[in-house]
Design a protein around this nucleic acid. Structure first.
Lengths: 106, 106
DNA sequence: CACACATATTAGTGGTTGCTAATATGATGA
DNA sequence: TCATCATATTAGCAACCACTAATATGTGTG
């Protein structure tokens, strides 16, 4: 770590560390969607999704724009999309080893 | 998400979602190190570091090899290194927006 | 084998975080 | 403006997870 603040970096990365958030990111990866659409996509609760969206927005991973009575969310930029793609790539190659992190750190 | 299991994916990504683990990854990014060296690097407790190492190993992000009485850890491969680099890149560009995730999801 | 050093594991605990339900805010259109 | 729909926020709770201290395993050396 050169100069960037580690704590902030971790907050950024924490955006990726939850199932619901990953699913949201995947859901809007290719097209922007309204909150309701995402809720339906994930079969989740509106308040829960809304909280995660706020988190992802705060982490700089997504952006929202008002569109009539809706708010449409999409990935912040191509880099975030690339990051998601790269996760898949590295993950594929590593998948078999992952049994880790049961409950506590382990 | 195409075919890969989301839960497993999240376990993989959770490897990146903790300050100590990020610091470990950065610490061994360019050269393999023994546990003691990492402990010293981070100014941490041996048992704690050891647990995080186990987690990172389980997540497929690092590998360890016995070397005499020591065990030396290093990043699993170039892809993981690339991922770390890419974090920095995207993070730099996004940094100002990150105030998120205070305590609860927010 | 016994001792010393390096690392791993376990148990217990406190703080963090994601969930739900209820309520509040905000925007649109009659 | 009032009613309605879309989204955000809050409070409370349960589960999770990282931390420390203590102990165990393992490896090399006398």
């Amino acid at each position: 770590m050169i100069k960037t603040d580690v704590d902030l970096m971790v907050k950024f990365l924490r955006g990726f560390s939850d199932k619901t958030r990953i699913q949201i990111l995947e859901s809007i990866k290719d097209q922007e969607k309204t909150v309701s659409e995402i809720v339906e996509d994930l079969n989740g609760k509106q308040s829960n999704i809304s909280q995660h969206l706020a988190c992802l927005k705060g982490c700089g991973l997504i952006v929202g724009r008002q569109d009539g009575k809706f708010i449409k969310y999409s990935l912040r930029n191509q880099q975030v999309r690339d990051l998601l793609t790269m996760f898949h790539t590295v993950f594929e190659e590593v998948q078999t080893d992952i049994a880790c992190c049961e409950n506590h750190i382990e």
